[in-house]
Amino acid sequence: MENKIDELVPGIKYSAKDFASDVDVKWCPGCGDYSILAQVQRTSPDFGERKENIVWVSGIGCSSRFPYYMNTFGFHSIHGRAAAIATGVKLANPKLQVWVATGDGDMLSIGGNHFIHACRKNINLKILMFNNRIYGLTKGQYSPTSEKGKVTKSSPFGTVDWPFNAIKLADSAGATFIARSLDRDPKHLQEMITRASKHIGMAFIEVYQNCPIFNDGAFAALTEKDSKPDNVVILEHGKPLLFGANKNKGIKLDGLNPVIIDLNDGKHSISDCWVHDEFDDNPTRGFILARFSDLPGFPTPIGVFRQFKKATYDGDYYSQIAHVKKQKGSGTYEKLMFTSNTWEVN
């Protein structure tokens, strides 16, 4: 793919290589993280930012090693706190493009509070959450996205807790760009990353990612050639929801209930299908879509669930500063200290 880098970053032609640091990548062989890294490096030249203006912030976990491998500014922080640190980085210098690399445990468990509040405030960050439904770095305990009943090292009889649906969580918390992709679908992942990079506001991408050591094949039904067509529906704005090997199945909306229809049964046609509107400002349909991955028999959607414009925290904050400065003039030491309540001793 030819990058239109000349237009994006005047005077600089970046390639994927420019975004690779000199550090040896040390994920396990076969880990889905390699693909995510490759897609980010490939798309980075398209972000339209000089690389010194890009910052990758992470928490703790396998995914959080990510910044070390990017030749941008990077900050590998502490468990769960990436969103909070990234918020500070962005607020202090809004010219930076700030990305967060995180995992399901890092962002949805220990970092849950920072995540929902970063979404609520619509801080202009891009969060790339690697979801492998397991704790990898601590060697195989269940995570907040592990399916109920999962047998892991810390749940030998199966878990009794319900998992988070990250898409629902991000949308209800206030994120303004909500998408999902797959480590094994490089093209789709590249598209999601590039689009997130252009979004102004909180952009959240959940990437289903295979952990070959502790949760191998967790998403095989979604990524393997034979099973993918029946189990994945690709969301494209303005297009009907179709899936199946020959796009022979569709989804229609019966009131608020999604129904799978067979386009070859003679009773249904493509015009019955739900047409995806990613700019829908009513979250209802986005929620119904997000539920698909929890409904037996339904395909898992990938793509942009919803995106919309909303004032960002950082944007409004700086507008407020500019407004007050315009009203009062810029602050000086004299204005700070010599207020009306002073008195003089001679």
Binding site: A84, G88, N113, I321, V324, K325, G329
Partner: peptide, 23 residues
């Protein structure tokens, strides 16, 4: 604000210091 001061009222104490570290 006329001094450009940013006060980020964080969601918790941890975010208070983490945002400061980021800044």
């Amino acid at each position: 604000k006329d001094f450009g001061v940013i006060t980020f009222q964080a969601e918790d104490e941890i975010s208070g210091i983490c945002s400061a570290i980021g800044a």
